[in-house]
Design a protein around this nucleic acid. Structure first.
Length: 216
DNA sequence: ACCCAGGTGGCCC
DNA sequence: GGGCCACATGGG
């Protein structure tokens, strides 16, 4: 079994789609930042607060008092840091792209990824989430679930973010649809099967995965 | 009272 | 390069 088998097994086993719902590209980016190390449910509350206050926009974010922004996103945790991160990204968007996300789309993936990684609060996972789900670039998102799942399947990829990312991208190709699905499937699979129940009912790996996968 | 949740940055060695 | 730590909320 290699990485391609795992990806194909995930795709056969689950019919997941529309992984990152949103009403705008900026909302996806804000969600990516707010979702750092916190449940998606908390993020949804914070996003709803921002919408209710009609500030889900880079210039509106910059027009807010720091304390007001913190108050709105408080349910998503780490709210002082994340308020700073949102302002950093908003300022970057305004300064570099005149606040117009559409102007980012002509930039090459590697260049854009470098710009994102240079921002305070944007690490590799958040950068790749923005590239893939907000901007439609072929960039696989590695998260803690991917490390755990691939480790337990004995793929021997190690814990290097960039290593796992490039291996998956080589296995899947520059296909935004499949790269998006692959990340969603890794997370949903781990949450609903391997890391949640010992029996792993309905596990798409049944028959091919070592028993360690189901240890939880 | 724990443990976990769709990370990042800073520090240390 | 890896190993800790702070950051903060909400739910089981």
């Amino acid at each position: 079994m290699d990485l391609r088998d795992v990806i194909e097994a995930l795709e056969r086993g689950c019919g997941r789609d529309e992984w990152w719902p949103s009403e705008s590209v900026f909302e996806v980016i804000v969600g990516a930042i707010l979702a750092q190390r916190v449940s998606w449910k908390n993020v949804q509350i914070a996003i709803a607060n921002l919408k209710c206050a009609q500030v889900l926009d880079p210039r509106a974010i910059m027009g807010l008092d720091e304390s007001r922004l913190q108050e709105l996103i408080r349910p998503s945790g780490f709210y002082r840091q994340k308020a700073r991160y949102l302002r950093t990204f908003s300022a970057y968007l305004i300064d570099r792209y005149d606040g117009d996300i559409k102007l980012m789309k002509g930039i090459r993936t590697a260049q854009l990824r470098g710009e994102l990684l240079s921002l305070d609060g944007i690490g590799p996972e958040t950068a790749d989430t923005i590239l893939l789900y907000a901007l439609g670039h072929p960039s696989f998102v590695v998260d803690s679930y991917a490390f755990r799942l691939f480790d337990r399947l004995g793929l021997g990829l190690g814990r290097s973010y960039d290593k796992v990312k490039t291996e998956v991208e080589d296995a899947i190709g520059r296909d935004v649809r499949r790269l998006s699905l692959a990340h969603a499937l890794v997370v949903t699979h781990c949450k609903t099967h391997c890391l949640a129940t010992p029996l792993c009912l309905g596990c798409p790996f049944s028959g091919i995965c070592p028993s360690e996968v189901h240890d939880g």
